[in-house]
């Protein structure tokens, strides 16, 4: 009979429940946004508010994603790692909405302007690079590709560390003034990265 049944009986169901919470938690603000936009609650210029909300939400989700494995270790609760995949995918979803809102609502799909802004503005280029990486990570999170890629999958997905840093950098440079808020986010990101410095070193080694 299942040995794990006694000791770990609650562990898996709880993780599944938490997974459900991740989906609800990441989707609910979007539903709220949808409502708020229609009801006119985003102030006089909803475009900018919307873009900032989505951008900041992406960064928070990224940090949360990075928090999972240290937490799983700390709590000796490996099943928690199940949350990484849905969280990562939600990061991509939020980032995509953030990027699309900028293209569609701020620049009104003026492709030549989008192109020139992407090239000319460093902070936008940084954000765009982060999105491209997330895109690659999202595509390769399909189970089929995961199996096919074998060891390379881990190599590729180590890039999430880079994405977090790019995202904080993008946030910092996009501000008209003030640095304290982005510094706090960057600080948290660096802490989370420092926590796993060994695995980051191993990841870098594996790339050589």
């Amino acid at each position: 009979m299942a040995v794990s049944g006694k000791r770990g009986g609650w562990r898996k169901p709880l993780a599944v429940l938490l997974q459900l919470f991740v989906h609800l938690g990441a989707a609910a603000p979007l539903l709220w946004l949808f409502y708020a936009i229609n009801a006119g609650h985003l102030g006089g210029d909803p475009v900018v508010e919307l873009i900032h909300y989505l951008g900041l939400g992406t960064i928070r989700l990224l940090l949360l994603t990075l928090l999972i494995s240290p937490l799983a270790r700390l709590l000796n609760y490996g099943q928690l790692n199940r949350l990484r995949r849905p969280l990562g995918l939600w990061c991509f979803a939020w980032a995509t909405l953030h990027f699309s809102a900028w293209m569609a609502l701020d620049l009104g799909f003026d492709w030549s302007l989008i192109g020139s802004e992407l090239v000319k503005r460093t902070y936008i280029l940084i954000g765009f690079s982060a999105w491209l990486i997330l895109l690659a990570l999202a595509i390769t999170s399909l189970p089929v590709l995961m199996r096919k890629m074998g060891k390379n999958w881990k190599k590729l997905h180590g890039l999430l560390y880079v994405v977090v840093l790019l995202a904080c950098w993008h946030f910092w440079w996009s501000l008209k003034s003030g640095w304290i808020e982005p510094a706090i986010y960057l600080g948290v990101a660096l802490l989370l990265l420092a926590w796993r410095s060994k695995s980051i070193r191993r990841w870098i080694e594996s790339l050589k």
């Binding site: 991740v22 938690g25 990441a26 609910a28 603000p29 709220w32 946004l33 708020a36 009801a39 006119g40 609650h41 985003l42 102030g43 508010e49 909300y53 900041l56 939400g57 928070r60 989700l61 940090l63 949360l64």
Partner: peptide
């Protein structure tokens, strides 16, 4: 009338505090 809504929503919903927009 447009102003009078939306306060505590963010607290309940926010994943890691995603409620920053809630401003009425």
């Amino acid at each position: 009338s447009r102003r009078s809504v939306i306060r505590g929503l963010g607290a309940g919903l926010g994943l890691a505090g995603l409620g920053g927009l809630v401003t009425a």
